[in-house]
């Protein structure tokens, strides 16, 4: 369990890297983060402002984080790609969505709240 938690933590840091970059790209100036460790996994709560003119980017983010299907084999093979590219791709956000076990995205007029959960491996 200890080793598994370390891997989950590493994946979490990459997920956060990707999400920060996405939010800043959508015009965020202030991002608040809260991470809690539970018996079965980590919960992440992110609250951020964004530029209302870039609402479509937030809607994209929401769609990517809440995919219709989650395919564990995609995560297993490709998770190391998350958070490492400099140019940015929507495919990386899609991979983040595949790595999470649950995600709720609440979009307001100029703020967005993400409630994410990732189980231990």
């Amino acid at each position: 369990m200890k080793h598994a938690t370390v891997i989950t933590r590493e994946k979490m840091s990459r997920i956060l890297d990707e999400l920060y970059t996405a939010l800043f790209t959508a015009g965020a100036n202030s991002i608040a983060l809260n991470i809690k460790r539970w018996d079965d996994g980590f919960s992440i709560s992110i609250e951020s402002d964004y530029d209302p003119a870039m609402r479509n980017k937030i809607e994209h983010l929401s769609r990517f984080l809440q995919p219709e299907i989650r395919n564990a084999s995609l995560e297993e093979t490709y998770w190391a790609l998350v958070g490492c590219d400099r140019t940015g791709e929507d495919s990386e956000l899609m991979l983040v969505g595949q790595m999470l076990d649950s995600a709720d995205v609440f979009i307001y007029e100029d703020r967005v709240r993400l409630a994410l959960f990732k189980k231990y491996e």
Binding site: P67, I69, L74, Y78, L81, D85, E89, D90, S91, M94, L95
Partner: peptide, 13 residues
């Protein structure tokens, strides 16, 4: 518009 860089799953995208 996609570069195709992994992972660009067009069915999901």
């Amino acid at each position: 518009r996609h570069s195709g860089r992994l992972i660009a799953d067009f069915v999901l995208l």
